[in-house]
């Protein structure tokens, strides 16, 4: 009896060892390219395509210094600052407008609510490429091209329905009795939003903010369409330009700058992981 029991335990353990081995191997495959990119960025140029190892024969930081200079006229410092100027207001405006709209949908029973909510959900599936040309013409007529207004202003008007939906789901989970008792205590609907809903929605707001930050940071298609002047380039455009202008041998400079542009999203991810998971778990959705 005992022997059989022991055998079973051993079998389970062996089985688990294989699972862990597989998971670890997969983890290596997933992350190795990123580590290799980083390692290559500090390798001497001629070594990049010779070895697949992570330890450089000689550490070269030259690639970062030279790469940072960008076009010469505009350094990566400019491109970083531009990206922040585009991303930070867009994220802030998205959060403000989304929470207002989500509060409206989650807590009030106004005419046409069902139709409007369905419309809002259906824009989740509206392909960006269908509306990009008229949007471009609209922004041209408004004189917004080559500025960050095509990104920030639509965000102010709740055009990121994904986050509205996410926050609606979250707010619906907050007990209505809290609102009602606050109302009886003399709070108007805006007080209720500020004093009750907002503090309780912090986790959802955080995760919405993080997702939006990362998505806007990585956005390439929209900036490619709306931004023309190099002085206003964001990191995506700058990187793309660097491939074109850098002499084909200076690979490590491009790699170095790729690494640099990846740092903010990765940092945000690691510092805010808790909210990532919470946000996904509460809403159950992510694109």
């Amino acid at each position: 009896m005992r022997v059989i029991f022991k055998m079973k335990v051993a079998k389970i353990n062996l089985h688990k060892v294989w699972v862990y081995l597989f998971l670890t191997l997969l983890g290596v495959v997933m992350v190795y390219p990123l580590l290799w990119l980083f390692a290559s960025s500090i390798k001497p140029n001629q070594d990049i395509f010779l070895s697949m190892g992570l330890i450089p024969s000689k550490v070269v930081l030259d690639s970062y210094i030279k790469g940072w200079q960008g076009t010469g006229q505009y350094t990566y410092g400019v491109f970083f600052w531009n990206t922040f100027k585009m991303v930070v207001p867009t994220v802030a405006f998205t959060l403000i407008s989304s929470v207002l709209v989500a509060y409206g949908f989650a807590r009030f029973d106004f005419p046409l609510k069902k139709i409007l909510f369905t419309l809002m959900l259906s824009t989740l599936m509206l392909p960006e490429s269908v509306i990009i040309i008229p949007r471009y013409m609209l922004f041209r007529d408004l004189n917004w091209l080559d500025s960050y207004l095509p990104f920030t202003i639509p965000a102010l008007f709740g055009t990121f329905s994904f986050f509205i939906f996410m926050l609606v789901q979250f707010i619906r989970g907050i007990p209505r009795e809290l609102d009602e008792s606050a109302f009886i205590d003399g709070c108007n609907s805006f007080d209720i939003l500020v004093k009750i809903i907002l503090p309780l929605s912090k986790p959802a707001l955080f995760s919405a903010g993080i997702f939006q930050f990362i998505w806007r940071w990585n956005d390439f298609f929209n900036v490619l369409v709306y931004i023309n002047s190099v002085s206003k380039y964001t990191l995506s455009l700058a990187l793309r330009m660097s491939i074109d202008i850098t002499q084909s041998v200076e690979w490590n400079q491009i790699m170095a700058m790729s690494v640099v542009t990846m740092i903010p999203p990765i940092l945000v991810f690691f510092f805010a992981q808790k909210y990532f998971v919470e946000g996904i778990a509460t809403t159950g959705l992510k694109g």
Binding site: G104, F110, P111, I131, P134, F157, I164
Partner: peptide, 24 residues
């Protein structure tokens, strides 16, 4: 006071009409 909900979703209504429905 339920109708005040329309005020809260007003930003989205404008955004939807101008930046989504119109271009569409």
């Amino acid at each position: 006071s339920q109708n005040i909900g329309l005020l809260y979703i007003a930003p989205w209504i404008i955004g939807f009409l101008v930046f989504q429905l119109y271009p569409f």
